[in-house]
């Protein structure tokens, strides 16, 4: 067999291995990225969505809904995309950007329980319109 042919076989093996790793990786570790409304629809149509690992995004923290027990590191809050509201329970340290102020966009990793509460394993937060609000304040002062 020519070296070129042998190399092509080796290359095919590597390409196949990479493809397999990617496909298997996605299948084993991929999670649905859903808005609260989409999650509600899916869970209503298919009960296997309860307890399934999901990432819930496109939602904001409902103002005033955050209760923290600092000592036990339990945080409860509600998220909403304007149509659907879910209660979220999280144990652990939240990022600095999760402040409890208005207009915080959050991404919650976790699973939906049958009680309708999302048990979060990770909470990511981002300030939404706050900087623009600050800009307006500055303008008002001037």
């Amino acid at each position: 067999m020519k070296a070129g042919t042998k190399f092509l076989i080796g290359a095919a093996v590597i390409v196949a291995a990479v493809s397999w790793l990617i496909v298997a990786g996605v299948r084993q570790t991929g999670v649905y990225y859903l808005t609260p409304t989409e999650l509600a629809q899916k869970a209503a149509a298919d009960s296997s969505y309860y307890g399934l690992g999901v990432r819930v995004g496109g939602a904001k923290v409902v103002p005033g809904s955050v209760t923290r027990d600092v000592a036990s590191q339990e945080i409860d809050f509600r998220i909403s995309d304007g149509h659907q509201i879910y209660a979220v329970n999280y144990h652990g340290i939240v990022p600095d950007t999760f402040t409890g102020a208005d207009d915080i966009e959050v991404i919650v990793d976790g699973s939906l329980g049958h009680d309708g509460v999302i048990r979060a394993t990770e909470v990511l937060a981002k300030c939404g319109s706050r900087y623009e609000a600050a800009a307006k304040d500055a303008r008002r002062q001037a």
Partner: peptide
Amino acid sequence: TKITVGPPFFNKVNIP
């Protein structure tokens, strides 16, 4: 549907 993959995916694929 949006599906995301995180560090477990990248580790699983890239360690080998």
